[in-house]
């Protein structure tokens, strides 16, 4: 008890470190995970097995997003942000090619002629 009471000053906590803080009612709603969310999960599982993005690196990525982004992003939005950042830091992917690929995907999605080949 003493330990968390002592730590209860907000400035000593990371924004993810919320155990014991006050909060509102637990909202019981649930959603079925979308395919893209399952793929983010799968990427982490596979990259972790490959030793490229370990769970602690994922956590560091999430815990350094900044409090604002942490609150605004959905769960798997945080994950893909963190995974991408670690991959860029390690030089596994480049930020330029990432940007190009995102633009290509966006164009492909918006083009009725190629809409079948979406991500």
């Amino acid at each position: 008890m003493i330990a968390w009471q002592h730590r209860d000053t907000a400035d000593m906590r990371g924004y993810h470190d919320i155990g014991g803080l006050a909060g509102g009612a637990v909202e019981r709603g649930e959603h079925d995970y979308a395919l893209w969310e399952k793929r983010v999960d799968a990427l982490l599982v596979l990259l972790s097995e490959a030793g490229l993005v370990r769970v602690d690196e994922l956590r560091r990525g999430i815990e350094t997003l900044g409090a604002d982004a942490y609150d605004k992003l959905s769960y798997y939005e945080r994950w893909i942000s963190a995974i991408t950042r670690v991959l860029i830091e390690k030089g596994v992917i480049g930020i330029d090619e990432l940007g190009r690929n995102m633009e290509t995907l966006k164009a492909r999605w918006n083009d009725p002629a190629t809409g079948e080949a979406k991500p």
Partner: peptide, 12 residues
């Protein structure tokens, strides 16, 4: 973020 997922996946 969906674009990011797709782009990262395809790059990998």
């Amino acid at each position: 973020y969906q674009l990011m997922e797709g782009a990262v996946r395809e790059l990998l």
